[in-house]
Amino acid sequence: MTPTFETAGVFAAIMLLAARLIQGLAYGDEMPTAQTYLAEMAPPERRGLWSSMIYVSGTIGACLGIFMGVIMNLFLSPEEMSEWGWRVPFFIGALGGLWALVGRSQLHESETFKSNKAKRPSIWPEFRRNCQSAFRVIGLTIGGTVCYYVWSVSAVQQAVVVHGMPQATALNASLLANVVLIISLPFWGKFSDRFGRRPALIIGNVVPLLLFFPMNAMVGQTFVSLFFPAALILLFMGATLANTPAVFAELFPTSVRTVGVAFPYAVAVAIFGGTAPYLQNWISTQYSVSAFSVYVCLLLLVSSVVAFFLPETKGKDLRD
């Protein structure tokens, strides 16, 4: 609903930027809160499976966005997309936001939270006592965040710009690769419920690390050259994405569980995920495309080490 530049000048861009910042702040609170809430509501023996629904729903949303891009590119010209087509996803997203608001108004607090509410300890002293867990959240987040960005978010742009793949082909390949991720997530959630969080996180970081360069070299101009490497990387990344909500909740006591997850998670995503598009462009321009791949692999290595030394938390009682 923002005015055009011709109508409002630079104020139009400022309005859009402000709206996106508010949306980003809301998401920064919502994501860890939803992770914590779902983990506390889940039965301990199925917490991994329940927690995988966070990224199932989120990735479905990403797929809908990609699918919308496919449809709009089929029916709208570049001029129409620039003039008014870009507003359509925002409008549909606004309707989805109203539906989500109704759903949130009908939620009830978890028994874990209600039983701890009367204690009301000081949050920040308690957070400082759990600073080791906060650093673990950062360490586990940085690798997966940037790797997911490369293979799920920027894969289309890179395939088109760097490799000359037709945009429609790249969108279709990315869409189906994300469908593979969605299907894998409940499997990895159940895997961690049975075999433990550590094995799942180690697989979800080490395998993409080992496959990153071979899969990156495979990308070319055909559908299969993007779909296969993206699907394979995202398939194993599902082991991390499905289980981090449960792991993060299990690392903190109830009194600081949400802020304990939210603050380090936001720091990691802002510093590493937020800078990924700019670093990818700058490093690829100044050095080479493979130089950015080295950067991503170093982050995955850090996350792999953190996962290896992580204490096993499967089935932990969250009522403390």
Rank of each mutant, 00 (worst) to 15 (best):
Y265F: 14
G164L: 02
G196W: 12
A100E: 07
V206Y: 04
Q157R: 12
V56Y: 09
F272D: 03
V180P: 03
A94W: 05
I203V: 15
V306C: 08
T141I: 05
F75S: 00
V261L: 09
K114C: 05
G28C: 11
V256Y: 01
L38D: 00
N216S: 15
A246N: 04
R46I: 13
Q158S: 12
Q132K: 14
W99K: 00
S293N: 14
G204F: 08
R257W: 02
I60N: 10
V102W: 13
Q221I: 07
M15H: 11
F248P: 05
L49I: 13
Y287W: 14
F5L: 14
T141L: 12
V224T: 10
P214Y: 03
T2Y: 02
M165R: 06
N178I: 11
A134Y: 00
C131S: 10
F308G: 05
F236K: 10
A266D: 10
L234V: 13
V153L: 12
F252W: 03
S105D: 07
E109P: 02
G143D: 00
V137S: 07
C147G: 05
T222D: 09
C297S: 14
L310D: 05
Y148N: 09
A276T: 13
I203A: 06
T33N: 09
S184P: 01
W151S: 08
Y287Q: 08
Y278Q: 06
L176R: 10
T222Y: 07
V102K: 10
F91G: 01
G260S: 02
L38G: 06
V267S: 07
G58A: 14
E111D: 09
P277Y: 06
Q158H: 13
K314M: 14
G144H: 04
I92R: 00
